[in-house]
Design a protein around this nucleic acid. Structure first.
Lengths: 203, 203
DNA sequence: GCGGCTCTTGACCGATCAGTCAAGTGCAGT
DNA sequence: ACTGCACTTGACTGATCGGTCAAGAGCCGC
């Protein structure tokens, strides 16, 4: 859909997306009907189809905005930071902060990944984020700070820890984002094992 | 549903669950209708409702069996292994192996987590797995092998890395499960950073 | 071959769904 | 005050949904 919107129109569109986001996250995408969305706003059904060609399009639009917003937050967090390891840490912190404030969008992203027709739209966004993280890893490897493992794999490991901890500790247990972020950073950078003192050999 | 099933009945039930699993994973839970499932098997609709009281019940049944099966694989992998760190590593390897062979079930679990009415059934199973992992972490902390961080957090970090790497490297890129598992173990145990030689201080 | 159980059939039900559209309202520019 | 476009209304459509049920088929012990 591509329409010339007046300020009033833009506000309606925003309302529709905001309300739909909430209902999709609470109830699921499919169980939430268009009728329910327009009723929730107290408007007629035609309003919905004035702004979106279909329910699917609305959902894709929500996903797109979410990804743009997260990416903006990440980019801002890396401003002025040059050290690759600290860039990774800052990226994790930014992601955790954003995640804490957008519980609903996290759920929608997770759902989108399970439905073949939404997955492609998601894939593109994730690839960019992973490529970014992988670049920092590569820089860290080059500067001798990070172990020489597959950067792509490490990037996904970072993503995995971050999203899992966000899901459980932020959204289920409502713990402070910065503490969870710090924990994620520590675990990822240093691992679980207590370092063996150099020269200590099992005998 | 609880019925006395003959061998023939058990086979039908198995067929229904297998076919539904495939369709749910390919198409999504909601977009797959009961009509489609029974058509896929070439039977009447009544067959479905002879074995399951509802579509939801079928889905929960699939989830339950999947969790039991994964848990069995994990338990078997830990047999005879006492060292907590090696138990963690073996658990990761078992999970990765199972995940590689049950792509479809992974997707269903991921979907179930996004729908409020299925999440509780999932939660119980995950809690058990996490509690198990956390116990090994605690043992490792006690024996001085693992850093003294929150065992629950570490357990979720392990889970996060494992599921993310499984999703991307096994299901999207079809890489060998044992290689991915080894990479996951390495990253988790040792972290990203190159260890600083003792005595080296930034100045 | 008979009775009784498991299993199967498929027409049918009411509800609900995404999406359409002819008609009308509100508002901005002139 | 008139014109034209942005926006809104809500009844309507055809399809599909999950679930029911009366009737009957296959099968097993006797």
């Amino acid at each position: 859909m591509d329409r010339r919107l007046t300020p009033r129109g833009r506000e309606r569109r925003r309302q529709l997306m905001a309300f739909a986001t909430r209902r999709f996250a609470e109830n699921g995408y499919h169980p939430t009907s268009v009728a329910e969305i327009v009723q929730g706003l107290g408007v007629g059904k035609g309003v919905f189809y004035w702004y979106f060609t279909s329910k699917d399009e609305l959902f894709l639009e929500i996903l797109k905005e979410a990804q743009q917003d997260l990416r903006r937050a990440q980019r801002q967090a890396l401003e002025g930071e040059q050290d690759p390891v600290r860039r990774i840490a800052q990226g994790i912190r930014a992601t955790m902060g954003w995640s804490a404030e957008h519980h609903e969008l996290n759920k929608l992203v997770q759902f989108a990944a399970t439905e073949e027709r939404f997955a492609p739209a998601l894939r593109r966004g994730q690839e960019v984020a992973v490529r970014d993280a992988a670049r920092h890893v590569r820089d860290g490897v080059a500067s001798g700070q990070i172990k020489d493992l597959d950067p792509d794999l490490l990037a996904h490991a970072i993503l995995g820890v971050t999203t899992q901890l966000a899901r459980v500790f932020l959204h289920e247990r409502h713990q402070p984002a910065d503490e969870v972020a710090d924990a994620a950073v520590t675990v990822l950078l240093e691992g679980l094992l207590v370092p063996e003192p150099a020269g200590t050999v099992a005998r």
